[in-house]
């Protein structure tokens, strides 16, 4: 462990590693937001009365959760780029290189994966809302939109938060895989530092600490959110 390698500025790798951490955070936040949107959509499909929608959602969660994330990244990045180029060339005769921007690609890949896990969490949370409450709301004459807003969403949020906290942890760590498409986040920066200085330890321990730091900060955020969602609920 050689701490002198980690100084700030041009003489050390400290600033590079912190920039990497910021990139990790940016990708993780965007992917997570996307994952929640996707997850809510597919959870609704899974709870739908229409069988084809349920099958589609089942297919999505089974496939995405069943294959390693690295494969998803490869397929979206290289496969998606090829499709885009074919379209560009076929329709517009645009023969030059067209590429998916790497940040967006990374976000879509990790978001798709996070979405699959979020689907299950949100579905479980919806099912956990006691039916009687919906019935009671209906009985007092609440309309569908109001029932959704006042009864379903606040409780789903409460039940889903611990699970969504787990999904966030997964998302944060999964971002380490998108270094393969060239996005310079913590892991890529650590690998470059290790290869350039021949001091892999210093860099992987730094990466370890940075991930721990990011997780600690966000964990605190989730605890506060849970506290907020659980206000007024009696707990054992």
């Amino acid at each position: 462990m050689d701490l002198s390698l980690l100084t700030w500025g041009d003489g050390g790798w400290g600033d590079e590693m912190v920039l990497g951490a910021l990139m990790t955070l940016a990708v993780a936040v965007c992917s997570y937001a996307l994952g929640i949107v996707i997850g809510s959509g597919f959870a609704a499909m899974k709870l739908s009365h229409l069988a084809p929608l349920r099958w589609l959602a089942d297919l999505y969660t089974t496939v995405i959760r069943g294959i390693p994330e690295l494969l998803i990244i490869y397929l979206v990045f290289f496969g998606g780029g090829a499709v885009l180029r074919t379209v560009a060339k076929g329709l517009f005769g645009y023969g030059d290189y067209v590429d998916l921007p790497i940040f967006v690609t990374g976000m879509v890949c990790i978001g798709l994966s996070a979405g699959a896990y979020a689907t299950e969490v949100i579905r479980g949370a919806v099912l956990a809302v006691p039916r009687g409450q919906i019935e009671a709301a209906r009985a007092v004459g609440m309309r569908k939109g109001l029932r959704f807003r006042r009864i379903l969403v606040p409780q789903v949020a409460r039940y889903a938060l611990p699970g969504l906290g787990n999904v966030w942890q997964l998302t944060l760590k999964e971002t380490s895989l998108i270094s393969v498409i060239g996005l310079v986040e913590i892991m890529r920066q650590a690998a470059v530092g290790a290869g350039s200085t021949k001091e892999p330890f210093t860099f992987y321990i730094t990466a370890f600490v940075l991930y721990l730091g990011l997780a600690s900060i966000s964990n605190r955020g989730f605890l506060r959110a849970e506290g907020w969602a659980n206000r007024g609920v009696r707990s054992a």
Partner: peptide, 22 residues
């Protein structure tokens, strides 16, 4: 639980394997 859930397995694996070598 906190430490193991907060860091990527890749880094843990690396530190356990190459770390023990040190």
């Amino acid at each position: 639980v906190y430490i193991f859930r907060s860091t990527p397995l890749l880094v843990q694996l690396f530190l356990i394997y190459y770390g023990s070598g040190q």
